[in-house]
């Protein structure tokens, strides 16, 4: 289990855990990022871009740190 922000560009991951704030969790879910979903890292790092459920979202401000994933 690693943070989303640690995953290299181009890698495919499965989301395990979202962030702590419930409101923000709802937000991530409504944008397609739910536990169990697969995502592709388009740009790595603290502020990253991920492709999930056919759309691209960007995450910033340590959010990518909080999201825990596993490489597939």
């Amino acid at each position: 289990m690693v943070s989303l922000s640690r995953c290299p560009k181009g890698s495919k991951v499965r989301v395990l855990e979202l962030c702590d704030d419930p409101k923000c969790r709802c937000r991530l879910c409504s944008m397609g990022l739910t536990p169990g979903v697969e995502a592709v890292i388009r740009q790595d790092g603290e502020s990253c871009r991920v492709c999930v459920r056919g759309d691209e979202i960007c995450l910033g401000n340590g959010l990518a740190d909080q999201i825990k994933v596993v490489r597939v």
Partner: peptide, 11 residues
Amino acid sequence: EATPFVMELPP
């Protein structure tokens, strides 16, 4: 608190 930054990047 800073609001987390999540945004859709439209094509």
